[in-house]
């Protein structure tokens, strides 16, 4: 502020003498205060659910809810387990999300590798096609998909939930973008010279190189499959995934909101654990351009 009184030239001269890097400077308290406030504000709904989900219903009527959880979490949890088949739904979600993840990873890496590193007729045209389909909301095909599933008699089975997302255009695009720079062409040629077949080259050169991107794609595919609600709701029937089962907590005639909130917290725990172990990967994946699957 004191420099404001000095002549503009003096300021410029001073700055020229000691150029401060803009981003090198440590930010002040205001920044940390803002970020802390944002964090508290955005974490609060989740924390509040935990507080309310571990109390009895009286907690919902007071204007200022307590800051610490009550002692009824396990009782409420037991109530959740008797209202819905929580563990069965959890198992279903694990099966669905894992199968989709493995399938998407395998097919995307295979196709992404071919698009990135192999030369073949029609490559550019086919890749353009993949990119164009990225902008098309394929989820809107639910009506015919459901009719087909019904005709095959698949409704109510986990297969019906899994099949429509066994491959994604985004996965192929993502793997291609990653592999195109990361594997030197010489490496593939060298492997070919040594007599390796295309598939051996893919398996021993392509896949190891693709691992970091596979980790990110896998994480996002898993999360997308885990959080999906519309399609499982339509086809799951009496064999729901966790998200569908969770929503049934609220659709009952008599709704006890502390139980609902306890269920919401319970259903969040698996992803919180994932976040705890793979949060950094999630952050770097988002920042590397891994986007909504």
């Amino acid at each position: 502020m004191s420099t404001a009184t000095a002549s503009p030239r003096a300021i410029v001269a001073e700055k020229r003498r000691a150029p401060r890097p803009i981003r090198g400077r440590r930010p002040g308290f205001l920044t940390y205060g803002l970020l802390t406030a944002w964090f508290v504000g955005s974490a609060y709904p989740l924390w509040w659910s935990f507080v309310a989900g571990s109390s009895d219903t009286s907690v919902l009527t007071v204007p200022y809810p307590p800051l610490l959880p009550g002692g009824r979490f396990w009782e409420n949890a037991r109530e959740v387990f008797t209202t819905i088949d929580f563990w069965g739904a959890l198992l279903n979600s694990v099966i669905v999300a894992s199968t989709i993840t493995i399938s998407v990873l395998f097919f995307s890496t295979l196709a992404g590798y071919a698009f990135a590193k192999l030369r073949f007729r029609g490559r550019n045209g086919l890749m353009l096609f993949v990119i164009l389909t990225l902008a098309i909301p394929t989820q809107l095909g639910i009506i015919p998909l459901f009719i087909l599933m019904k005709q095959f008699g698949w409704t109510g089975s986990l297969g019906a939930i899994i099949v429509p997302t066994l491959v994604t255009a985004f996965g192929v695009f993502f793997m291609r973008q990653y592999l195109v720079d990361v594997i030197p062409d010489e490496l593939i040629e060298a492997a070919r010279m040594d007599g390796a077949t295309q598939f051996r080259t893919f398996w021993h050169v392509g896949v190891p190189a693709a691992r970091p991107a596979m980790a990110i794609l896998g994480l996002f595919t898993f999360m997308t499959a885990w959080t999906d609600y519309l399609w499982p709701l339509i086809v799951a029937g009496s064999n729901p995934t966790l998200q569908v089962a969770l929503s049934q907590l609220q659709s009952a005639k008599y709704v006890n909101y502390t139980i609902v909130l306890c269920g919401a917290v319970l259903a969040t725990i698996p992803l919180l654990i994932l976040f705890f172990f793979a949060g950094r990967l999630l952050v770097s994946g988002i920042m590397a351009g891994a986007v909504k699957g």
Partner: peptide
């Protein structure tokens, strides 16, 4: 700090809807 802004993302839309509808 980066992790802290991402925290709500791990709550699934169904759970988000239940929490906020209350």
């Amino acid at each position: 700090w980066r992790l802290s802004v991402l925290l709500p993302y791990v709550v699934t839309p169904a759970a988000v809807a239940l929490i906020f509808s209350q």
